[in-house]
Design a protein around this nucleic acid. Sequence first.
DNA 1: CAGCTATATAACCGCAAGGGCATGAAAGCG
DNA 2: CGCTTTCATGCCCTTGCGGTTATATAGCTG
Lengths: 132, 132
Amino acid sequence: MAIPFDVLAEPSRRQILDLLLERPRLVGELTEHLGLTQPGTSKHLRVLREAGLVRVRRDAQRRWYELCPEPLAEVDAWLAPYRRLWTDRLDALERHLDTMPELAEVTGGPEPPDAPDAPPDAPPDPPDGEAP
Amino acid sequence: MAIPFDVLAEPSRRQILDLLLERPRLVGELTEHLGLTQPGTSKHLRVLREAGLVRVRRDAQRRWYELCPEPLAEVDAWLAPYRRLWTDRLDALERHLDTMPELAEVTGGPEPPDAPDAPPDAPPDPPDGEAP
DNA sequence: CAGCTATATAACCGCAAGGGCATGAAAGCG
DNA sequence: CGCTTTCATGCCCTTGCGGTTATATAGCTG
């Protein structure tokens, strides 16, 4: 449990980050929003802290937790090559619809073009994909 | 185990997606690259399939797995508001360094500005953040 | 048909993560 | 000083996941 991917797998932790996106928060405040016990919240905060996703500011007994978004850049970096793919498809669809607006009826999705690169044995084009 | 966040938490599954990013692949091929057993690979592929991240094409006994990047858009959407944050900071840093290049020495990171919004009790500015 | 190849499924196991309770620690307040 | 507030830690328990082995299924090949 160290890289942001694991951290983000937890809905409560994503929610914490979403809450901290607005403003710094106290543990009690977060606990209230999350609907779990205070130790539970503290545990998640510990994970977030160790992942470098949050920062603590002490104020007497209270702890102000604030966001540290930098580690998310790693996720964003991993996502980058994939982002091209679906934006390309959406752009193509948009252009297509823009070209012929009288046929603006979309049934399924645009059929992806065949594999650009040739694997050891070229994948053929069977009639159906999956029919249990 | 349904939304892409959980799926991406697994290194092997990210690796599968990375491999499928180049071209469609057979299960055996993926198994080889992953360094785990064939049933293990099939299990991960099942998860990816149910998450809508991959698609199967049958060719006799073989199965060509190909990428389906669309569900990743959800991750990207969640990430969007955070992306602004770190790009803003980096931009600010760049501008700063660009303004005074003779002081181009970075020690830690740029000190984040104080909380923009005022919580119920305004978080003060204690001398130190955390010193165990 | 038998036999081989390629993949999926089932059954099982170990381990770690999430959640709760009880407690400890730090710091204000009467 | 004790009491209260605010949070962190230490156990305990349960669940689910990732991994492996063994078996079933589908389809080619001889």
